[in-house]
Design a protein around this nucleic acid. Structure first.
Length: 259
DNA sequence: ATGGCATTTAAAAAATGA
Protein backbone atom coordinates (compact mmCIF):
# COMPACT_ATOMS: atom_id res chain seq x y z
CA UNK A 1 0.00 0.00 0.00
CA UNK A 2 1.35 3.36 -1.07
CA UNK A 3 0.75 6.26 1.31
CA UNK A 4 1.67 9.84 0.43
CA UNK A 5 1.71 13.27 1.99
CA UNK A 6 1.55 16.54 0.09
CA UNK A 7 1.32 20.13 1.29
CA UNK A 8 -0.54 21.43 -1.78
CA UNK A 9 -0.54 25.12 -0.76
CA UNK A 10 -4.10 25.74 -1.97
CA UNK A 11 -6.08 22.70 -3.13
CA UNK A 12 -8.20 24.61 -5.66
CA UNK A 13 -5.40 26.77 -7.03
CA UNK A 14 -3.22 23.67 -7.46
CA UNK A 15 -5.93 21.22 -8.53
CA UNK A 16 -4.45 20.55 -12.03
CA UNK A 17 -1.07 19.76 -10.45
CA UNK A 18 -2.64 17.55 -7.77
CA UNK A 19 -4.66 15.59 -10.32
CA UNK A 20 -1.72 15.18 -12.69
CA UNK A 21 0.40 13.83 -9.82
CA UNK A 22 -2.36 11.50 -8.53
CA UNK A 23 -2.78 9.96 -11.99
CA UNK A 24 0.96 9.45 -12.27
CA UNK A 25 1.81 8.28 -8.72
CA UNK A 26 -1.40 6.32 -8.02
CA UNK A 27 -1.10 6.40 -4.22
CA UNK A 28 -3.70 4.45 -2.21
CA UNK A 29 -3.88 7.05 0.58
CA UNK A 30 -2.92 10.72 0.40
CA UNK A 31 -2.70 13.19 3.27
CA UNK A 32 -3.07 16.79 2.10
CA UNK A 33 -2.21 19.97 3.99
CA UNK A 34 -2.85 23.67 3.40
CA UNK A 35 -6.14 23.28 1.56
CA UNK A 36 -6.83 27.02 1.96
CA UNK A 37 -10.51 26.54 1.23
CA UNK A 38 -13.77 26.49 3.17
CA UNK A 39 -15.34 23.02 3.46
CA UNK A 40 -18.04 23.74 0.87
CA UNK A 41 -15.44 24.55 -1.80
CA UNK A 42 -13.37 21.38 -1.39
CA UNK A 43 -13.03 19.83 -4.90
CA UNK A 44 -14.74 16.56 -4.00
CA UNK A 45 -16.28 15.91 -7.44
CA UNK A 46 -13.02 16.44 -9.34
CA UNK A 47 -11.25 13.94 -7.09
CA UNK A 48 -14.07 11.39 -7.24
CA UNK A 49 -13.94 11.63 -11.02
CA UNK A 50 -10.42 10.17 -10.93
CA UNK A 51 -11.22 7.51 -8.36
CA UNK A 52 -10.54 9.11 -4.98
CA UNK A 53 -12.86 9.50 -2.03
CA UNK A 54 -12.01 12.19 0.51
CA UNK A 55 -12.57 13.34 4.04
CA UNK A 56 -11.52 16.88 4.91
CA UNK A 57 -11.35 19.48 7.63
CA UNK A 58 -11.03 22.94 6.14
CA UNK A 59 -11.55 26.60 6.86
CA UNK A 60 -11.68 29.81 4.85
CA UNK A 61 -8.34 31.06 3.45
CA UNK A 62 -5.94 29.17 5.68
CA UNK A 63 -4.78 25.76 6.87
CA UNK A 64 -7.02 22.76 6.14
CA UNK A 65 -6.21 19.03 5.97
CA UNK A 66 -7.70 16.13 4.02
CA UNK A 67 -7.22 12.40 3.48
CA UNK A 68 -7.85 10.96 0.03
CA UNK A 69 -8.43 7.23 -0.40
CA UNK A 70 -8.72 5.15 -3.52
CA UNK A 71 -12.22 3.86 -4.08
CA UNK A 72 -12.60 0.64 -2.13
CA UNK A 73 -10.57 1.59 0.93
CA UNK A 74 -12.44 1.01 4.20
CA UNK A 75 -12.57 4.35 6.05
CA UNK A 76 -13.87 4.46 9.62
CA UNK A 77 -13.41 6.21 12.98
CA UNK A 78 -12.97 9.73 11.62
CA UNK A 79 -11.86 12.51 13.99
CA UNK A 80 -11.38 16.17 13.09
CA UNK A 81 -9.28 18.56 15.16
CA UNK A 82 -6.47 17.91 17.65
CA UNK A 83 -7.79 17.50 21.21
CA UNK A 84 -6.56 19.61 24.10
CA UNK A 85 -7.69 23.17 23.36
CA UNK A 86 -11.36 23.99 22.70
CA UNK A 87 -10.35 27.58 21.81
CA UNK A 88 -8.23 26.41 18.87
CA UNK A 89 -10.25 26.88 15.67
CA UNK A 90 -7.45 26.22 13.17
CA UNK A 91 -8.01 23.17 10.94
CA UNK A 92 -4.77 21.25 11.27
CA UNK A 93 -5.62 17.65 12.17
CA UNK A 94 -7.74 14.85 10.73
CA UNK A 95 -7.57 11.17 11.64
CA UNK A 96 -9.20 8.01 10.35
CA UNK A 97 -8.74 4.26 10.42
CA UNK A 98 -8.11 3.16 6.85
CA UNK A 99 -7.59 -0.49 5.84
CA UNK A 100 -6.79 -1.25 9.49
CA UNK A 101 -4.17 1.49 9.96
CA UNK A 102 -4.86 4.70 11.86
CA UNK A 103 -3.77 7.59 9.64
CA UNK A 104 -3.35 10.93 11.41
CA UNK A 105 -2.86 13.77 8.92
CA UNK A 106 -1.43 16.91 10.47
CA UNK A 107 -0.31 20.41 9.56
CA UNK A 108 1.81 21.72 12.39
CA UNK A 109 1.86 25.52 12.86
CA UNK A 110 4.77 27.26 11.19
CA UNK A 111 5.56 29.46 14.19
CA UNK A 112 7.11 32.49 12.51
CA UNK A 113 7.96 35.12 13.48
CA UNK A 114 9.84 33.53 16.36
CA UNK A 115 9.91 34.19 19.19
CA UNK A 116 6.35 35.48 19.54
CA UNK A 117 2.72 34.39 19.96
CA UNK A 118 2.76 32.30 16.77
CA UNK A 119 5.79 30.41 18.02
CA UNK A 120 4.07 29.91 21.40
CA UNK A 121 1.07 28.48 19.53
CA UNK A 122 3.35 26.11 17.63
CA UNK A 123 4.88 24.75 20.82
CA UNK A 124 1.49 24.47 22.54
CA UNK A 125 0.26 22.52 19.51
CA UNK A 126 3.32 20.25 19.74
CA UNK A 127 2.54 19.59 23.40
CA UNK A 128 -1.01 18.54 22.50
CA UNK A 129 0.38 16.37 19.68
CA UNK A 130 2.77 14.62 22.08
CA UNK A 131 -0.18 13.77 24.33
CA UNK A 132 -2.23 12.50 21.39
CA UNK A 133 0.73 10.54 19.99
CA UNK A 134 1.37 8.81 23.33
CA UNK A 135 -2.26 7.72 23.46
CA UNK A 136 -2.16 6.46 19.88
CA UNK A 137 1.06 4.48 20.26
CA UNK A 138 -0.32 2.72 23.36
CA UNK A 139 -3.36 1.46 21.45
CA UNK A 140 -1.45 -1.37 19.86
CA UNK A 141 -2.98 -0.60 16.46
CA UNK A 142 -0.72 0.32 13.54
CA UNK A 143 -0.58 4.12 13.34
CA UNK A 144 1.03 6.60 10.97
CA UNK A 145 1.43 10.23 12.07
CA UNK A 146 2.01 12.00 8.79
CA UNK A 147 2.12 15.49 7.38
CA UNK A 148 3.86 18.84 7.36
CA UNK A 149 5.60 19.13 10.73
CA UNK A 150 7.14 22.53 9.94
CA UNK A 151 10.21 21.06 11.64
CA UNK A 152 13.67 20.41 10.22
CA UNK A 153 14.81 17.58 12.51
CA UNK A 154 18.60 17.77 12.09
CA UNK A 155 21.29 19.66 10.16
CA UNK A 156 21.27 16.84 7.62
CA UNK A 157 17.73 17.92 6.71
CA UNK A 158 18.75 21.36 5.42
CA UNK A 159 20.85 22.25 2.37
CA UNK A 160 22.33 25.16 4.33
CA UNK A 161 21.42 24.95 8.03
CA UNK A 162 22.77 28.44 8.80
CA UNK A 163 20.12 29.98 6.51
CA UNK A 164 17.42 28.63 8.87
CA UNK A 165 18.81 29.32 12.35
CA UNK A 166 16.49 32.31 12.87
CA UNK A 167 13.45 30.49 11.47
CA UNK A 168 10.84 28.73 13.61
CA UNK A 169 11.20 25.53 11.55
CA UNK A 170 14.78 25.17 12.79
CA UNK A 171 14.52 26.54 16.34
CA UNK A 172 15.76 24.16 19.08
CA UNK A 173 12.31 23.82 20.69
CA UNK A 174 10.44 22.21 17.76
CA UNK A 175 13.46 20.04 17.00
CA UNK A 176 13.49 18.86 20.63
CA UNK A 177 9.74 18.18 20.46
CA UNK A 178 10.28 16.09 17.31
CA UNK A 179 12.98 14.12 19.16
CA UNK A 180 10.47 13.57 21.99
CA UNK A 181 8.15 11.93 19.47
CA UNK A 182 10.98 9.62 18.39
CA UNK A 183 11.66 8.79 22.05
CA UNK A 184 8.03 7.70 22.39
CA UNK A 185 8.93 5.04 19.83
CA UNK A 186 7.84 6.62 16.54
CA UNK A 187 9.98 5.84 13.51
CA UNK A 188 10.96 8.53 11.00
CA UNK A 189 10.28 6.43 7.89
CA UNK A 190 12.16 8.47 5.30
CA UNK A 191 15.25 8.84 7.49
CA UNK A 192 15.16 5.09 8.19
CA UNK A 193 15.13 4.36 4.47
CA UNK A 194 17.83 6.95 3.71
CA UNK A 195 20.01 7.20 6.85
CA UNK A 196 22.62 9.60 5.48
CA UNK A 197 21.11 11.25 2.43
CA UNK A 198 20.31 14.94 2.04
CA UNK A 199 16.65 14.66 1.10
CA UNK A 200 14.36 17.65 0.92
CA UNK A 201 10.59 18.12 0.67
CA UNK A 202 10.36 21.92 0.51
CA UNK A 203 12.13 24.59 -1.54
CA UNK A 204 11.50 28.38 -1.40
CA UNK A 205 9.81 29.91 -4.41
CA UNK A 206 12.42 32.66 -4.50
CA UNK A 207 16.13 32.91 -5.18
CA UNK A 208 16.07 29.90 -7.52
CA UNK A 209 15.96 27.67 -4.46
CA UNK A 210 14.73 24.58 -6.30
CA UNK A 211 17.27 24.81 -9.11
CA UNK A 212 20.02 25.15 -6.49
CA UNK A 213 18.44 22.29 -4.49
CA UNK A 214 18.41 24.69 -1.53
CA UNK A 215 15.70 22.80 0.33
CA UNK A 216 14.70 21.49 3.71
CA UNK A 217 12.96 18.30 4.92
CA UNK A 218 9.81 19.08 6.90
CA UNK A 219 7.21 16.57 5.70
CA UNK A 220 7.47 13.38 7.71
CA UNK A 221 5.98 9.91 8.19
CA UNK A 222 6.18 8.72 11.79
CA UNK A 223 5.37 5.01 12.05
CA UNK A 224 4.29 3.15 15.16
CA UNK A 225 6.92 0.47 15.96
CA UNK A 226 4.72 -2.43 14.79
CA UNK A 227 4.93 -1.08 11.21
CA UNK A 228 8.72 -1.02 11.07
CA UNK A 229 9.13 -4.42 9.45
CA UNK A 230 6.53 -3.61 6.80
CA UNK A 231 8.18 -0.44 5.49
CA UNK A 232 9.41 -1.48 2.05
CA UNK A 233 10.15 1.78 0.27
CA UNK A 234 9.62 5.49 -0.02
CA UNK A 235 10.84 8.71 -1.56
CA UNK A 236 10.19 12.28 -2.62
CA UNK A 237 8.47 12.99 -5.95
CA UNK A 238 10.87 15.84 -6.48
CA UNK A 239 10.10 16.38 -10.17
CA UNK A 240 6.59 17.62 -9.25
CA UNK A 241 8.23 20.68 -7.65
CA UNK A 242 9.39 21.73 -11.14
CA UNK A 243 5.88 21.76 -12.66
CA UNK A 244 3.99 24.95 -13.56
CA UNK A 245 1.82 26.43 -10.78
CA UNK A 246 3.23 23.91 -8.31
CA UNK A 247 3.36 23.95 -4.50
CA UNK A 248 6.58 24.88 -2.70
CA UNK A 249 6.46 21.37 -1.19
CA UNK A 250 6.88 18.13 -3.15
CA UNK A 251 4.83 14.98 -2.50
CA UNK A 252 6.49 12.38 -0.27
CA UNK A 253 5.47 8.70 -0.16
CA UNK A 254 6.14 5.39 1.52
CA UNK A 255 5.22 1.81 0.70
CA UNK A 256 3.82 -0.45 3.45
CA UNK A 257 3.55 -4.15 2.61
CA UNK A 258 0.52 -6.13 3.75
CA UNK A 259 0.73 -7.08 7.40
C1' DA B 1 19.00 42.50 8.35
C1' DT B 2 15.89 42.23 4.45
C1' DG B 3 13.61 40.39 0.64
C1' DG B 4 13.13 37.38 -2.69
C1' DC B 5 7.55 34.54 -4.46
C1' DA B 6 2.85 32.88 -4.24
C1' DT B 7 -1.45 32.02 -2.13
C1' DT B 8 -6.28 33.86 -0.38
C1' DT B 9 -9.92 37.34 -0.16
C1' DA B 10 -11.77 40.55 -2.80
C1' DA B 11 -11.41 44.29 -5.73
C1' DA B 12 -6.15 47.25 -3.66
C1' DA B 13 -3.62 45.83 -0.55
C1' DA B 14 -3.17 43.02 3.53
C1' DA B 15 -2.31 38.64 5.80
C1' DT B 16 0.15 34.42 5.69
C1' DG B 17 3.64 31.31 4.82
C1' DA B 18 8.80 29.39 5.92
Amino acid sequence: MKIATYNVNGVNGRLPVLIKWLKEAKPDIVCLQELKTPDEKFPQESLEAIGYNAIWHGQKSWNGVAILTKNGCAVEAIYKGLPGDPEDIQSRYIEAKINGIIIACLYLPNGNPAPGPKFDYKMAWYKRLLTKARRLIKKGTPVILVGDYNTVPTELDAHKPERWVNDAVFFPEPRAAFQKLLKQGWIDAIRTLYPEEKLFTYWDYFANAFKRNAGIRMDHFLLSPDLKDFLSGGGVDKHVRAWEKTSDHAPVWIEITDQ
